[in-house]
Design a protein around this nucleic acid. Structure first.
Lengths: 217, 217
DNA sequence: TTGTGTGAATCCCTTCACAGCG
DNA sequence: CGCTGTGAAGGGATTCACACAA
């Protein structure tokens, strides 16, 4: 009866790619839910998420059993389970560091708030920007980072600063107690154990695109 | 003497992850070059690119032999080889579709031009934006896409449009003859054979971050 | 001697195929 | 029956370890 609750306490190693697929499944489920669909098979979930039915079942089986044999999965139930697995039951408090073009685009991006990522503080080091209002909050001096992260209980930082500055900012952020980082600067960050970094690197994406295009010729 | 030229004409299948690492190696080499270093070992290249020496050698061996045994690789030479492999010897002509926040951030992003990605046209469908000047060029009506892509010989499109619009725009772009697409909208695109898509999905990155953070507890 | 290039071994992820449950 | 959940098989990718070239 109480099967399929949460991830196993004995942590098997879960691959990065499996987690990314879970995120895609969740997106698909949300779409189905909006469309009013109640049940979904691994077959259909796979088709809409660009993978295979076996892969879907295997991915889910890493965390429990969420389906009813002969019927499929309840859209709402599986959605809840995935949100639980991905750690999305709580809202996350995020610091945006860098109030330039990318920072601004991210700040305005509705998708983040909708999914429970609240940008509760914005930082920059440019005196001409510090003190300006963005939405409800004010752009703060990055020097205040360590204090503010503690005060506002911030867990995640988004680094949208120039590549020269990024390691320095990262060091401040990890000293401040940030545990997860989304890094937009094209440099591998050195971080202490216990801090997780994800890189978003447009040039890599474009270059893997041009590789594919040149191969095709 | 003429070893290690270009990728093998008989195309082995090269993994996506290998290509992404090549891109990282190139970034590291550029840094070393700026620092005036002339030779580099697989060991050092690996350390600076967050992988292993064996991985570096294996990756490179997919395309030829670029090193000198007992010494390592010539920074400049290997850089040239990687640029060649990744298809970066020619500049690429890019259309930016969507002149919103993300589009604007991308347009201003110096890293793209520096690496040979020239944004030669910007499109939007909002009449209040069409006709405005961005840099040298004017924001065009997305209805002109098919004509302009041909006229300007555009190979790559960056899609920075709302999720509802993206498949429609994608269809136009592929009809127009675009061969590669960088997609910022959180939806899997359906594309004809011969068109390559890379997705940039911030929510997936953040969710794989929160997964890691929740596991760590 | 040094550090590359590469077969062989290993590890991990995906796919298969079917037992088992609703 | 139908579709999930899962061991087993298969296929890639990474790591190992060493022959070999400079």
């Amino acid at each position: 009866m109480t099967r399929g609750r949460r991830q196993a306490p004995v942590s098997k190693k879960i691959s990065e790619s499996a987690v990314r697929r879970l995120s895609l499944y969740l997106r698909t489920l949300e779409e189905l839910d909006r469309a009013g669909q109640e049940m979904v098979s691994s077959e259909q979930l796979a088709a809409k998420s660009a993978t295979t039915a076996a892969q879907v079942r295997k991915d889910l089986s890493l965390f429990g059993s969420f389906g009813k044999r002969g019927f499929g999965y309840t859209v709402e139930e599986l959605g809840r389970a995935l949100r639980d697995i991905l750690g999305l039951t709580q809202p996350w408090r995020v610091a945006l560091i860098g109030a330039g073009r990318i920072g601004s685009a991210l700040f305005e991006y509705r998708g983040l708030t909708h999914r429970g990522f609240q940008i509760v503080a914005v930082f920059d080091c440019d005196p001409s920007k510090i003190g300006r209002k963005w939405g409800d909050s004010m752009i703060r001096d990055v020097a205040e980072l360590e204090r503010v992260v503690g005060d506002l209980d911030i867990q995640i930082a988004i680094l949208a600063v120039p590549v020269e500055a990024v390691q320095g900012v990262m060091d401040q952020a990890s000293r401040a107690g940030v545990r997860g980082v989304l890094n937009f600067a094209p440099r591998r960050l050195k971080v202490p154990a216990g801090v997780t970094v994800k890189d978003v690197n447009l040039v890599i994406e474009l270059e893997s695109l041009t590789f594919a295009l040149s191969q095709g010729v």
